[in-house]
Amino acid sequence: MSTPTDLATIIGFGLSRLRIQNRHHDFEHLCRDLARARIASNILPATGPVAGSGDQGRDFETFHTYLANTLTSTSTFIGRAASNTITFACTVQQNGLLAKISADVKAICSQGTPVQRIYFFCTEPLRTSDRHNAQDWTSREYGIALEVLDGPAISELLSEHDVFWIAKTHLHLPAELTPPSLTSRPASAPTRKASIQRADHEMAKAIDLLASRTTRPISEFNPLDFRAAFASDLRALLRLSGSPELSLIAAKVECQESQLIDYMSGNHLPSQKRTREMVRAMAEFCRERGIDLPDSQFEEQFWARKLRVARKSGMQKTVKHKALKIAAPKRNAKR
């Protein structure tokens, strides 16, 4: 069985062959599948000649969805759907990557729908300093964020169990290389301290995400915002569990479906007992459907801590401080 490092090396070699074999379209399809799995699900492919102006420098981009404000936000689609317009560009070009990035950014920003973020995928490695220079230039010139995923980064992402199928499909790798799932790997039980730290970090990320969708500073976030963050994490777990119908969860938990709707929408916080029951019910759905998720996703101390943070203002101060640290690099990039 290949180690993660070995597998990433194999995938990296497969990516490098795409340029030699003139398979830009295969790389574009690979990146689109990876983006749907890891970045946003509401993605449209571009139409028009790749080398011409038909795709406006955009190999694929997100489309707007109004479903995020409805009950169906508990679905797999909304769980990953981007609220802002994101555009993606891909290249198998080996040399002159900085020039290619700047050209694509200029093409994307000078025509078509305004965007808030650009993801640039390339098969070749890009130095960290070059990536930062490109990000600073994009932020300074166009006021938008740029993310660059080079060959080594893509290789590491594709070596994970749940997305390896993308590498297998587009790089024609043998199924025998499929890495084991996280749940099949022996792991020691997390300590209480580790569970608390992880829960606080996840809540901080949820608060940072909420802040990015509003004009309010994180320092002004209140208990209602933390209730919304907890509900967002519950919806994310439901999505990871295969998005079972809420009526099925309600049957396992032995409560009214309307109560689950309140919990998932952030109208009310569940009790600790009810939270434990919901998390266990979603873990059962994972097992029944053969979905591989790490046990840490369902760890009771982890969810108990999240619930306590959502309830107690003193703990919320600590999490807001963590969220500010997460947001700091983004603020600096915009300066």
Score class of each variant (00 low, 15 high):
Ser265Met: 15
Ile196Pro: 01
Ser184Asp: 11
Glu160Ala: 11
Met278Asp: 09
Val105Pro: 02
Ser129Ile: 13
Thr178Lys: 11
Glu160Pro: 01
Glu176Tyr: 07
Tyr263Met: 02
Glu220Arg: 11
Ala189Leu: 08
Leu210Cys: 03
Ser41Gly: 07
Gln135Pro: 04
His29Leu: 14
Leu149Ser: 04
Ala89Val: 03
His268Asp: 09
Ala107Gln: 13
Val50Ala: 15
Asp136Trp: 09
Val92Tyr: 02
Thr275Leu: 13
His172Met: 12
Val50Met: 12
Ala82Ser: 09
Gln259Asn: 10
Asp33Met: 08
Met203Phe: 04
Arg335Ala: 10
Gly143Thr: 13
Asn332Pro: 00
Phe121His: 06
Leu18Met: 12
Gly266Gln: 05
Gln116His: 14
Ala328Ile: 02
Arg335Met: 07
His172Tyr: 10
Cys109Trp: 03
Ala89Thr: 10
Pro180Arg: 13
Thr65Glu: 08
Cys255Gly: 07
Tyr263Asp: 03
Arg131Tyr: 00
Ala228Met: 12
His161Ile: 09
Ser265Asp: 07
Thr62Asp: 04
Val163Lys: 06
Pro190Ile: 12
Thr74Trp: 14
Arg280Pro: 00
Lys168Gly: 06
Met282Trp: 04
Arg289Ile: 00
Thr183Val: 14
Ala231Glu: 02
His64Thr: 14
Ala323Leu: 03
Arg280Leu: 15
Phe302Asn: 10
Lys320Val: 00
Asn69Tyr: 06
Arg140Asp: 02
Ser184Thr: 12
Arg276Asn: 12
Asp104Pro: 06
Gln116Asp: 15
Gly54Phe: 04
Gln93Leu: 12
Gly52Arg: 11
Arg216Ile: 07
Pro217Arg: 08
Thr138Glu: 06
Arg335Thr: 12
Thr70Asp: 05
Asp162Asn: 11
Ala37Gly: 06
Met282Ile: 05
Gly112Tyr: 08
Ala187Val: 13
Gln256Phe: 03
Leu240Phe: 10
Leu260Ser: 03
Leu293Asp: 05
Leu224Ser: 13
Cys109Gln: 09
Phe120Asn: 08
Thr169Pro: 03
Ala51Lys: 11
His64Pro: 11
Met282Leu: 10
Pro114Ala: 09
Leu248Lys: 14
Ile101Val: 15
Thr183Phe: 03
Arg23Val: 00
Lys205Gly: 00
Asn332Phe: 12
Val279Asn: 03
His161Leu: 06
Asp136Met: 13
Thr74Leu: 05
Ile326Phe: 04
Asn332Ala: 15
Gln94Ser: 14
Ile144Gly: 01
Thr183Gly: 00
Ser243Ile: 09
Ala175Trp: 05
Thr47Leu: 06
Ser271Tyr: 02
Ala304Ile: 00
Ile101Leu: 05
Ser188Thr: 12
His29Gly: 00
Pro179Gly: 01
Ser184Pro: 01
His268Arg: 14
Thr183Pro: 00
Ile39Pro: 00
Arg36Gln: 15
Gln21Pro: 00
Tyr142Lys: 05
Phe285Lys: 09
Gly112Ser: 08
Pro174Leu: 07
Ser53Cys: 09
